[in-house]
Design a protein around this nucleic acid. Structure first.
Length: 488
RNA sequence: CGGGAUGUAGCGCAGCCCGGUAGCGUACACGUCUGGGGGGCGUGUGGUCGCAGGUUCAAAUCCUGUCAUCCCGACCA
């Protein structure tokens, strides 16, 4: 098989090819939709399991709401409609029939009284339920998460980064006070940050979106932004303080302790299969994926090297014993004893798939009681005594996880720069930097900068130091720097 | 929705200009030699040439229509 295009040659093609070659996903026949293949789905499942655990640890429960949203619900929150109307799939009929030419056609008789929207997000359908669930402060808070698929009819799609249908989780909470809701939105941003850094080894910048970049219907949008290897930003997760916008749209009030009716305060927060894109573009190299041990479907792959079944049997005596030990330790091992692929082919294959540790054992090793171990992240290869292998694997799994984060953190730090004029700004962008620059705080300036440079305000970082300066475009005064980058 | 391109085996492509038996690479199956970094040799399976019309003795090839996909724009939490 041909080599992967390098990141340097063509970053976009490298990404696309890698997704296909690593067997994560493929384009389906359906426009803009992908098939997530078992290896890709296994990574998603590992991410999902950990996130689900964290949500429950922080007091949330799972529920499930309908895929279809009556059109009238979506219309209730004005900004929300604005944000999503242009990318909705609409169900208009409920039956097909065979016509006079023998063709399967939509039955015009079966038109829906009210059209149904395939959910682009679930605020409206969920708040329509919350209306019936909430009457007293004693009913609050409601802390619900749902794992679901959503559909957004995007013009241009890319595997994992932007697909018509995608998988995600969406948390929707209801609170008695603004303070509590804001605290919830911030808490979940923290959960995302910790998950992404500790499990996916992806460092992020936490911040608030500018008003223009806010979620449709939110008072405040918090986000985590990650840096891809080409210097572009990828929004890895968002958490929104929705104020009382949805409560007002759906008439959701509660009786407080003073016997007064008040509107409920809301949050929503989500991460999606887009995180798979972040994983790939943060860690993968020109040989393929590199997956952090904590979410790798296989943490270790073992390739026995043999000329015939008899040799394989001898090797497998040792391998079976090792497999038993690793299983006891909870280490995920794949043994590839397939005899119609060569060892060289397998080495390349598992590098493409990003398995953190590779072991190889042949007859030479059996005679010497040794085993070859190779780290995927650094490529470091050594021959160890078989007796020492368990300790080395355990040590490597920890080291690889840590090292991957450190490498990514260094990249983020080294490529985030302060700029004070437009020339440096543009030059920085072309060199793949994240830019901290002064901005006059107006939407007009933000828009102008986007037009000129394709860069957007990714966020106003949390705990941003205040500092007097002047806007790089207009020269008007500014009190803090904000983070600009080109984004996916 | 504007501009450009492409539809031929699972995948990647040639053939089309100049009409005449459907080709190559890869994958797959079998055999054999191999096996410590994407193996060699041999044999074989697999195609309504996107779809619908038309011209012709004859269409992957020429003509008309149509559908789909991709790229560049517009659009995009």
């Amino acid at each position: 098989m041909e080599k992967l295009p390098t990141r340097q040659e063509n970053y976009a093609e490298w990404y696309n090819e890698l997704v296909l070659r690593a067997d994560l996903a493929e384009h389906s026949q359906v426009r803009g939709c992908m098939v997530i293949k078992p290896y890709g789905y296994a990574i998603w499942e590992n991410m999902k399991a950990e996130l689900d655990f964290q949500f429950k640890e922080t007091g949330h429960v799972n529920a499930y709401f309908p895929l279809f949203i009556p059109k009238s619900y979506l219309a209730k929150e004005a900004k929300h409609v604005d944000g999503f109307a242009k990318e909705c799939a609409v169900v208009t009929h409920y039956r097909l029939k065979i016509d006079e030419h023998g063709e399967l056609v939509t039955d015009p008789e079966a038109k829906l009284e009210e059209e149904l929207i395939v959910r682009p997000t679930s605020e409206t359908i969920i708040w329509n339920s919350y209306k019936n669930w909430i009457s007293s402060y004693r009913d609050l808070p409601i802390l619900i998460n749902q794992w679901a698929n959503v559909v957004r009819w995007e013009m241009r799609t890319r595997l994992f980064l932007r697909t018509t249908e995608f998988l995600w989780q969406e948390g929707h909470t209801a609170h008695a006070t603004a303070e509590e809701a804001i605290a919830e939105a911030e808490k979940m941003l923290g959960v995302y940050t910790q998950f992404v850094q500790d499990f996916m080894a992806i460092p992020v910048v936490q911040g608030r979106k500018s008003p223009a970049e806010r979620f449709a219907g939110a008072e405040e949008t918090y986000c985590i932004e990650a840096m891809m290897q080409d210097g572009k930003a990828l929004q890895a997760g968002t958490s929104h303080f929705l104020g009382q916008n949805f409560a007002k749209a759906f008439e959701v009030k509660y009786m407080n302790k003073e016997n007064k009716q008040e509107y409920v305060w809301a949050t929503s927060w989500g991460v999606s299969t887009r995180l798979m894109g972040a994983l790939i573009m943060t860690h993968a190299d020109d040989k393929g994926l590199v997956i952090p041990p904590k979410i790798a479907p296989w943490q270790v792959v073992l390739v026995p090297i043999f000329k015939n079944q008899e040799q394989l049997s001898q090797i497998m005596v040792f391998v079976d014993e090792l497999a038993k030990t690793l299983k006891q330790k909870g280490i995920r091992l794949k043994i590839d004893a397939d005899d119609h692929k060569t060892p060289g082919w397998k080495f390349s294959e598992y590098e493409m798939k990003g398995v953190p540790i590779r072991l190889a054992v042949g007859m030479r090793d059996m005679e010497n009681k040794t085993i070859e171990i190779v780290r995927r992240d650094t490529g470091e290869k050594q021959s160890l005594a078989q007796a020492d292998i368990l300790a080395s694997i355990e040590k490597y799994l920890v080291e690889i996880q840590e090292n991957m984060l450190v490498v990514a953190q260094n990249r983020l730090r080294e490529n985030t720069i302060k700029v004070d004029n437009l020339q440096d700004f543009v030059q920085g962008l072309d060199n793949g930097k994240f830019l901290l620059a002064h901005w006059d705080g107006t939407e007009a300036t933000e828009e102008k900068i986007k037009e000129m440079t394709k860069a957007t305000i990714r966020c106003v970082p949390l705990n941003n130091p205040l500092e007097d300066g002047v806007c790089i475009l207009t020269g008007k005064p500014s009190t803090q720097r904000v983070l600009f980058a080109r984004a996916y």
